[in-house]
Computed example of a mutant assay.
Amino acid sequence: MMWQGLFSLFNVSWQVQRTLGMSHDRHVAATAHTPQGFLIDSSQNVRGQINFSTKETGFYQLCLKNQQNHFGSVQVYLNFGVFYEGPEMDHKQKNERKQLNDTVDAIEESTRKVQNNIFHMWRYYNFARMRKMADFFLLQSNYNYVNWWSTAQSLVIVLSGILQLYFLKRLFNIPKTTDTKKPRC
Rank of each mutant, 00 (worst) to 15 (best):
F10T: 06
I162P: 00
Q17H: 05
K94S: 08
N144T: 01
Q17R: 05
L163K: 06
V46S: 01
K92H: 12
C185Y: 11
F137C: 02
K94W: 15
Y124G: 11
K92V: 11
W14H: 00
Q61R: 15
W122N: 09
L62W: 08
T34H: 14
L159Q: 08
H120R: 04
G81R: 13
G48S: 05
Q153S: 07
L155G: 07
T111E: 02
R129Y: 09
L64A: 01
F137A: 01
W149K: 08
E96R: 08
S42H: 15
N101R: 06
L138V: 12
V28Y: 05
W148N: 09
N117W: 12
Q75K: 13
Q61M: 13
R18G: 11
T54Q: 13
G5Q: 14
S53A: 13
A32D: 03
R131L: 10
A29E: 10
N11R: 13
F10C: 09
V76W: 05
L78R: 04
N144K: 08
W14R: 00
K65L: 11
K132N: 07
N117Y: 13
N126W: 10
R123K: 15
E109I: 06
E96F: 05
K176N: 01
R18N: 14
Q36K: 15
M130N: 00
L64P: 02
Q75C: 09
G86I: 01
N117M: 14
A32P: 04
K65D: 06
Q15R: 12
E56C: 03
R47E: 13
N144M: 02
G86Y: 06
T151N: 09
L171N: 02
S154N: 10
W14E: 00
G37F: 11
Y125L: 10
W148D: 04
L9G: 03
L168S: 08
T177N: 02
Q153I: 08
I50A: 06
Q99C: 00
Q153L: 13
V158G: 00
A134E: 03
M22L: 13
I157K: 03
P175Q: 04
Q15C: 05
L20Y: 15
G86N: 07
D41H: 14
M133T: 07
N117A: 12
T103R: 10
N69F: 05
L62M: 10
L64Q: 01
V146F: 15
I118D: 03
S150V: 04
V28F: 04
K94L: 15
T31L: 11
Q67L: 03
S141A: 07
V104C: 10
